[in-house]
Design a protein around this nucleic acid. Sequence first.
DNA 1: GAGATACTTGACGTTTACGTCAACGTTGGT
DNA 2: ACCAACGTTGACGTAAACGTCAAGTATCTC
Lengths: 153, 153
Amino acid sequence: MSREESTPARTKDAGPSAQRSTERPAFSIRDLTREFGVSARTLRFYEEKGLLGPQRRGQERLYSRRDRARLKYVLMGKSVGFSLEEIREMLDLYDLGDRQETQLRVAHEKFGERIARLERQREEIGKAIAELAHMRKVIEGMLATRERAAAKP
Amino acid sequence: MSREESTPARTKDAGPSAQRSTERPAFSIRDLTREFGVSARTLRFYEEKGLLGPQRRGQERLYSRRDRARLKYVLMGKSVGFSLEEIREMLDLYDLGDRQETQLRVAHEKFGERIARLERQREEIGKAIAELAHMRKVIEGMLATRERAAAKP
DNA sequence: GAGATACTTGACGTTTACGTCAACGTTGGT
DNA sequence: ACCAACGTTGACGTAAACGTCAAGTATCTC
């Protein structure tokens, strides 16, 4: 077995010697894996895909607070079903430089679409919850029947 | 190009000659692809994975109304992020035969877990919506600034 | 009887998002 | 000096969910 990846779970607070994450100016790859519960491979992969762009100290990656914030967005995006490509696009669209008005309008519309999509998704989930809740009730009914049958023979 | 797959989009109503779907006792594979906008390959794949179990007339698949209903569940499940394997498990768990009480309890718990998961997911989506809405607002702000700058030079 | 049409079974290809493994460099501690 | 920990770059492997293509069968139609 390679010694890489021994993330034992989400380690939110990194012990007494660690400064508060937001106060630190830069993070090692391990820092981020521990804080967010992702593998180093994953972070390198995200970089390869243009989602992160850490500095280098020689060969080593140095993640800034900005990288850390971007990573947060990536993970949030993933959790709601966006692909990495979509997330990258949104990050790029939001990268506030001195954009042209046209670009701003495009970005604005794009965000609108994404929001609309999430809202539809939320509705779908609502329907699914209702469906599953109904199924569960049916099962409850069957259990109740069982118990009545067992009670009076 | 192979002649298979020419689904032009979601065709909800299949024309005048088609009976109301729910009245028909059985469906061809094409019927279902057209009604649900999925490919024939997909339906065969679902069968391979144990999600559907159509009858055969010779070689041809004949889908019952039950198959059709299962397919609906599959698509709903997929739309909220369940894997095909998870969906198969739920379908199996719900297949109301004369189950043992233990099995019913297991099924009940499982459905509870799935519901809880969807509820968490819905929360996540809510947070993501708030986040994206905020980003969009920032972009709106930048647009407004542009316009003020353009108005009084 | 020759297409055209609808269906079938393999079997290999594709995309996404990483995991896994090998081989190597750098640094801190003993 | 040495090794253990942490880091690096390839490069290949994998799982899910199909797509795509080839080759064959059955039926209807002209």
